[in-house]
Design a binder for these strands. Structure first.
Length: 401
RNA sequence: GGGUAGGUAGCAGAGCGGUCAAAUGCAUCAGACUGUAAAUCUGACGCCCUACGGGCUACGGGGGUUCGAAUCCCUCCCUACCCA
C-alpha cells in the first residue's frame, strides 16, 4: 500500500523527531513540492559511522525521496576545531590527512543509504578557510559569551574546573556559517546540536537569507542502554559484517526494540505499533521481535539475502550452539604447531598468553570436546577436518596435508 | 610574567622507598545461566617460557641516590587550573 505524499511528509516530520523549529513552514514548503536544500554536516572524527548516526541519515534519505536536494557538508575545517556539543572533555584537533582518510570511508558508508549522485557535497574549508580575522569578528558579533557558557555541557565543564578553549567557542559560528554558504532551507541534527543549528538561523538572517528550518532527531541508545558512542564501544557500525551486525542487534535490551524499529528501520509505523502492542501483552516473544529487527537492519545495509543468512547463522550458532558451515579453514603443520600456535596464527587469540588463558578457562574445544591440556598436539588421524572453537563465535576448521 | 596541581595499563583513576605487573570502576576476553552476543554471577585481563613455577619489559623522556624506586633528587618535555 503506497503512502500518499502527505502521509510521507507526516511521517518524515514525526518519526523519530525530537523537535522542530519553524516546522510549519517546512511542512508547507514540502507540500508545495519545493526542492528544498537539506543540509547535514558530517564531522569526520572517526572512520566508522554507526547506527546512531543512521537516524539522521535515514531522514536525509526520506527528504531525498521527496525530491529535496541533499547537501552534505564535510567538516574538514570544523573538524580541526572540534565540536563541543557531545563531549565532556575537550576534543583534539584532527590532522588534516586523517580527516581525508576518514572521509573516504565515510563516503562509501553514506552511499549505503543516500543516492550520492543526486546529492551535493562540500567541504567547509571551501568557504571557511578564506575568512580573515575581520570576517570572523563580524560573525562573532552576533553571539555573546553568556549564551555560549550557558550551554549545559559547557557549564558543566566550567563548573568542574575543566578547560574550555576559546577555539571551541568558534565552532557554532562555523557550523552556522556553513548554512549561509550553502543557502540551506533545512538542517538536520541530533538534539545535542540545538545550539549549533540555531546559530545557522541567526547568521542566515544576518546575511539577509531566510532562516533555515530545523529538524532534530532523537539520540539513539547503544547496545548497553547508554548513549551510543564510539568511545563507549557500544555501537553497531554500518560496516559491521552481517553476522556481527545481527548479533549486536540481538544483544540490545528488550526495551529498546521498539525505539530501534522506529529510528533505525523503515518498517511502516503501523506495523511497529502492532509489534509494540503484541510485545506489551506478551503475545509476541521479545526474541522474535528482535530477530525481525535484526533482519531489517542487516537488510538495510547489506541485502535481504544477507539478512536471512545472518539470521540462520545466529539461530544455529548461538541459539543451537551448532558449528556453522561457513568457517575459515586452516592447514595445520602437525609437526610444529600446537593448539596454542594455531589459535594465535588464526587470530583467535591475541598472544600466546591469551591463548593459554582461553584454554585454561575452558573456552577452547575441538569437535565439541573441551581441550584441557595446554600443549595439546594436533593429530591428523584424530583432528582432520574437525572444527576448533574458541568462545562463542570463533571457529576454524583444521586440515592436514 | 607569577603561582599551583599534574603526567600511572585501552580509558578513568589509586598507589607516594621494598609485600607493585601495580587497588578500584568502565571497556575487553573466557565460563555458568538464558529466548539472547542482554542482565546476573564466576574467573581472567603486559609479553615470553614444556608453566600452580620462572624470565623479560613497564608507571612522560634522560640522568642520579639506594641493597632496592611508580614512589626520593636533578634535568628536560608536556598538560590543566588560578592570578596578573
Amino acid at each position: 500500500m503506497e503512502m500518499t505524499r502527505e502521509q510521507k511528509i507526516d511521517e518524515l516530520l514525526t518519526r523519530g523527531v525530537a523537535d522542530m523549529i519553524d516546522g510549519e513552514r517546512l511542512r508547507e514548503r514540502l507540500m508545495r513540492g519545493d526542492e528544498l536544500r537539506v543540509k547535514l554536516g558530517i564531522d569526520p572524527t572517526s572512520p566508522n559511522l554507526h547506527i546512531g548516526r543512521s537516524v539522521v541519515l535515514l531522514k536525509l534519505r526520506d527528504f531525498q525521496e521527496l525530491g529535496c536536494k541533499v547537501v552534505l557538508i564535510v567538516g574538514d575545517f570544523t573538524g580541526q576545531i572540534g565540536d563541543t556539543s557531545d563531549k565532556e572533555s575537550e576534543r583534539p584537533m584532527l590532522k588534516s590527512d586523517l580527516i581525508k582518510e576518514n572521509m573516504r570511508t565515510y563516503t562509501s558508508q553514506l552511499g549505503m543509504l543516500i543516492d550520492l549522485s543526486k546529492a551535493e557535497m562540500h567541504s567547509n574549508s571551501e568557504w571557511l578557510q578564506p575568512l580573515g580575522f575581520d570576517d570572523i569578528g563580524t560573525e562573532a558579533e552576533h553571539f555573546s559569551v553568556a549564551e555560549f557558557i550557558a550551554r549545559e555541557n559547557i557549564k558543566k565543564r566550567l563548573d568542574e574546573g575543566k578547560r574550555v578553549s576559546l577555539r571551541e567557542m568558534l565552532y557554532p559560528l562555523m557550523q552556522g556559517y556553513d548554512s549561509v554558504a550553502v543557502h540551506a532551507d533545512v538542517e538536520l541534527g541530533g538534539t545535542d546540536q540545538r545550539f549549533n543549528l540555531l546559530a545557522g538561523r541567526r547568521l542566515q538572517e544576518a546575511h539577509g537569507q531566510v532562516a533555515q528550518s530545523i529538524l532534530m532527531t532523537d539520540l539513539m541508545l547503544g547496545t548497553d542502554g547508554r548513549k551510543m558512542s564510539s568511545s563507549w564501544g557500544n555501537t553497531i557500525n554500518l560496516l559491521d559484517t552481517p553476522n556481527n551486525m545481527f548479533g549486536k542487534v540481538m544483544s540490545i535490551a528488550d526495551s529498546m526494540i521498539v525505539p530501534y524499529l522506529i529510528h533505525c528501520t523503515r518498517v511502516p509505523l503501523a506495523e511497529v505499533e502492532v509489534i509494540e502492542a503484541k510485545l506489551f501483552d506478551g503475545e509476541l516473544n521479545p526474541r522474535d521481535a528482535k530477530l525481525r529487527l535484526a533482519q531489517e537492519i542487516v537488510t538495510l545495509y547489506h541485502s535481504t539475502e544477507e539478512g536471512e543468512k545472518a539470521e540462520k547463522y545466529f539461530v544455529e550458532t548461538i541459539s543451537e550452539k551448532k558449528i556453522p558451515e561457513d568457517i575459515p579453514v586452516t592447514l595445520v603443520n602437525a609437526e610444529q604447531e600446537t593448539v596454542v600456535d594455531v589459535l594465535v596464527r588464526m587470530q583467535l587469540a591475541t598472544s600466546k598468553s591469551d591463548a593459554w588463558r582461553k584454554i585454561e578457562q575452558g573456552g577452547v574445544s575441538i569437535d565439541g570436546e573441551k581441550i584441557s591440556e595446554k600443549d595439546t598436539h594436533l593429530d591428523k588421524t584424530k583432528h582432520h577436518n574437525k572444527a576448533l572453537k574458541v568462545g562463542k563465535h570463533g571457529f576454524v576448521r583444521l586440515q592436514f596435508s
